[in-house]
């Protein structure tokens, strides 16, 4: 059995974001990077599924510049068997369809039984790359998957989807299928020292595609700081302790909760 996991490199959550000179994205010059949150959970679920099955391989795939290799290396250290790096230098200017199409072309021949993606990227947040990819690969999909019934894995697979406000629903899929994985599906393992050493000899296949033009691509015209909608009283002027003293006074005199 073969599971392909899509993983994307994104700016670190705590990075201070500066808008680029052309106002179309952030200035990436000195941004710290990390693996997209839900993609880490997608990898974990793939590893557990193969372990439960007792056979098979997990193949990581990322599309991005050379620097995105750290995502791959980390995934290999955590137990993925091999990787496909779709090398695109200016990946941030691609639309979701272009990303999905380029990845589809790179993985089609792999004929995977399952493809796992994160449910959403923390930078572009298209929330659709996986769904488009499934359509392009001609396989069914399920989004926001919060549990995989690993014991059910055969020609079909039973998965639990998260619906809104505390509702859930099980679906059974014929394989092959694509699942977009929700954060929190299971606890993520750390890379062991042994894993880190083993990763060094694992295969990373590089593909350097020509990304096709896509007439219907949406395009960012301008990026800017969100407009403030509410008048927030900032207390303490940057001094947390002074702010705390002022806040208790406000809770007493204005909010009247103390």
């Amino acid at each position: 059995m073969k599971i392909i996991v899509l993983m994307k490199q994104v700016a670190n959550k705590d990075a201070v974001l500066r808008i680029a000179g052309d106002e179309k994205w952030i200035n990436e010059a000195d941004v710290a990077w990390q693996t997209n949150e839900s993609d880490g959970y997608a990898l974990e679920e793939a590893l557990r599924t193969v372990e439960a099955k007792g056979e098979g391989e997990v193949v990581v795939c990322t599309l991005g510049p050379q620097g995105a290799k750290t995502v791959i290396k980390d995934a290999l250290a955590r137990g993925a068997n091999r990787a496909i790096h779709v090398v695109v230098d200016d990946s941030k200017s691609l639309s979701s369809y272009q990303i999905a199409k380029t990845i589809a072309d790179a993985i089609k021949e792999e004929n995977a039984d399952l493809v796992f993606t994160g449910l959403q990227s923390d930078d572009a947040s298209f929330g659709q790359t996986g769904v488009i990819l499934a359509e392009l690969l001609g396989i069914p999909h399920a989004t926001i998957v919060i549990e995989v019934d690993r014991a059910s894995l055969g020609d079909t697979l039973r998965v639990k989807r998260e619906l809104e406000s505390g509702w859930y629903q099980w679906f059974t899929y014929k394989l092959p299928a694509l699942l977009t994985i929700q954060s929190g599906i299971s606890q993520i393992r750390y890379a062991s020292l042994k894993g880190i050493m083993a990763a060094k000899s694992k295969e990373i296949r590089e593909v350097t595609p020509a990304v096709e033009e896509f007439a219907s691509a949406s395009a960012i015209q301008k990026v800017y700081m969100p407009l403030k909608t509410k008048q927030t009283q900032i207390l303490g002027n940057g001094d947390a302790k002074a702010g705390a003293v002022e806040l208790v006074e406000k809770l007493r005199s204005e909010v009247r909760i103390i």
Partner: peptide, 17 residues
């Protein structure tokens, strides 16, 4: 639309037909 988990806004135009 909001990007980077709500930290930035982006004005987006639609392409094609």
């Amino acid at each position: 639309r909001r990007i980077f988990l709500g930290k930035l806004d982006a004005d987006v135009t639609l392409g094609g037909d």
